[in-house]
Nucleic acid binder design. Structure first.
Length: 548
RNA sequence: GACCCUAUCAUCUAGCGGUUAGGAUACGACCCUCUCAAGGUCGGUACACGAGUUCAAAUCUCGUUAGGGUCGCCA
């Protein structure tokens, strides 16, 4: 490539390679410290899979005492969305994933390798592209989109491997004179990598998560600089991960097949390639088949889905940890009080599946456990925060009745293994606790009376009798003894054993009488501990509900 | 189509030549119990198929089949 051509392609002054390397020196790392990154595109959409990859990367770095950073990959200006960086930062922060370097939610860089936004690193990529061009490892290509489309169609029709390689790499053999002619004619160009690979040769890739993979070398002359002067993912990956000192690239499975290319790029640029680990995609069951969780079709692919439903952040994190290391649940059982981030993720024992189905039943079960481990105060805080955005009316009620809710949420809570686990997500709670408030309390005495074969009058009599003896200060035993007395008086068995032995001797059992009271108090036949509920409701409310 | 990856209960998985194939979720039963939830006990269901190698295969090899991923001036 003549200096004239190079000058035409890069008319503007670019920083020298020396300057760049000096500005971004290698990191001083202790042995074993890993440097990883999360590198999302600012599309305004955060995929659960991205969170998954971010979590794994963050753990890898921080478990090793290394560095985890955030890089914004906005080289596709068409897909760029305003405010997307904020979405990314907030999403990660929400799940406790903090980058040591990168871009913050106000779009400000922090850290020694700034800028961390690719569109702001244009000159850097161009400097390296120029270097490759000078060394004959890259060349300008003048093929238009239609020409490439046509070529691909022909290749497909002929059963050829599609792509820009070999005899299909039309611009690769162009002479300097031809290139200059095109340039002078003002033909639009892009820059392609001149691959030195041979598709018939094979290379061994040592993947951290997948193990050894044998793949053909890359022989595609891929685009490194697009017509807008910005790099493609592949080129930006090589440049940035070199300059930013990434030691371990942990990313989605969809990149596995580009590893031969990426390694080639590192070789061409004279750099050491990072270690790679590819994470299997999250899948979804679809008509008996599995497919990747899709942004287009699956609402749960979007991280905001879990916010709307009100899954505690820890629940999702624990679910994801469980997916990458199935031993998580054993660890959790033996370490019920530890933070999920204390779990030692084992990268040698990663579940090596083709991609796990996202299992809501499992998530739900984990979520129940997570909520059950929280204190009433923690639940109240998280619930309020959720409601503020997703159920403002409920949020108002929560803040207006703070103490009452703290007591409600504390029913049968933090009593060890037997703690209630009936809340899966925050959105469950409003309806489940509605009966504590008079304006949302409803009951249907008649259908219940029918259910247990009693008249409404009898029901009312039971309630009235209980009302007469009810004392808020009664402990649970005293309270229950009073119910037993009423049961016996009405011909109901006062304990379940004798009822079960000779049901014909009774009109019903203590459970029916308890349920009469339950219906009066809660309007339901199922509830948490009735005594506790009455305690929480307070004497006045209890008495007025027994009034009927 | 080509190239890769994967194949153990319904689901997530443990297993790395000799196991009654283990756990979790879900499901069912029983116990506990004032209902529900929880808890406890128990239960059913799995090595895709076919060849090898071996005294011995879920485990190693090959093939078949199935599923997934990738083949862009998207990342």
């Amino acid at each position: 490539m003549t200096p004239e051509i190079i000058a035409k392609i890069f008319p503007n002054e670019l920083p020298s390679i020396e300057e760049i390397e000096k500005k971004y020196p290698p990191r001083a790392l202790q042995p074993g410290q890993k440097v990883t990154r999360v590198a999302p595109s600012p599309t305004g959409f955060m995929h659960v899979g991205s969170l998954y990859a971010a979590l794994v990367s963050e753990r890898a770095a921080h478990q090793s005492g290394g560095v985890f950073y955030l890089r914004v990959e906005d080289t596709d200006q068409k897909r760029k969305v305003e405010g997307a960086v904020e979405v990314i930062c907030k999403s990660l922060a929400r799940y406790g994933i903090v980058a040591d370097e990168g871009v913050n939610e106000n779009n400000q860089d922090y850290g020694p390798y700034a800028p961390y936004t690719q569109s702001e690193r244009k000159e850097i990529y161009q400097a390296y592209a120029k270097k490759l061009l000078t060394e004959g490892l890259a060349y300008p290509c003048f093929c238009g989109a239609e020409e490439l489309d046509l070529m691909r169609k022909i290749q497909e029709k002929q059963g050829q491997r599609p792509g820009y390689y070999g005899k299909y790499a039309h611009c690769r053999p162009l002479t300097d004179a031809q290139i200059l002619e095109n340039l002078n004619a003002g033909k639009p160009w892009i820059l392609r990598f001149k691959s030195m690979g041979d598709n018939n040769k094979r290379m061994l890739i040592k993947d951290l998560l997948k193990g050894d993979v044998n793949m053909p070398e890359n022989d595609l002359d891929i685009v490194i600089l697009k017509s807008d002067g910005l790099p493609t993912y592949h080129f930006a990956h090589a440049v940035d991960d070199h300059l930013m000192g990434t030691t371990h690239v942990l990313r989605g499975d969809e990149w596995l097949s580009s590893v031969p290319l990426h390694i080639q790029l590192f070789v061409a640029l004279g750099w050491k390639a990072p270690k790679y680990g590819h994470i299997a995609p999250l899948q979804k069951s679809d008509n008996g088949n599995k497919r990747k969780l899709s942004k287009r079709y699956d609402p749960e692919a979007n991280i905001t889905y879990f916010w709307e439903k009100g899954y505690p952040e820890t629940a999702l994190i624990e679910y994801l940890l469980n997916l990458i290391n199935a031993s998580f649940e054993d660890w959790r059982r033996t370490n019920p009080d530890k933070d999920a981030f204390d779990f030692p993720l084992n990268f040698n024992k990663v579940s090596n599946s083709a991609g796990a189905l996202f299992d809501f039943q499992k998530l739900n079960s984990i979520s129940k456990e997570v909520i059950a481990r929280m204190t009433a105060d923690e639940v109240y805080q998280a619930l309020s925060a959720w409601a503020k955005t997703y159920n403002p009316a409920f949020a108002d009620r929560l803040s207006a009745n703070r103490d009452y809710y703290l007591h409600i949420l504390n029913i049968e809570r933090n009593i060890g293994k037997k703690s209630r686990k009936d809340f899966i997500k925050w959105s469950d709670i409003e309806a489940d606790t509605a009966y504590f408030f008079d304006d949302t309390f409803t009951r249907d005495l008649e259908s219940f009376a029918k259910e247990i074969n009693l008249s409404v009058e009898e029901l009312k009599a039971v309630a009235a009798e209980f009302k007469a003896v009810y004392r808020a200060e009664d402990d649970k035993n005293t309270w229950f003894e009073k119910i037993k007395v009423i049961a016996e008086k009405h011909g109901f068995a006062s304990d379940m054993k004798s009822y079960r032995e000779t049901p014909e001797k009774f009109k019903g059992s203590i459970s029916d009488i308890s349920n009469v009271l339950r219906i009066f108090i809660t309007g339901r036949t199922q509830s948490p501990d009735l005594h506790a509920i009455m305690q929480v409701m307070g004497t006045n409310r209890v008495l007025s509900r027994l009034e009927a």
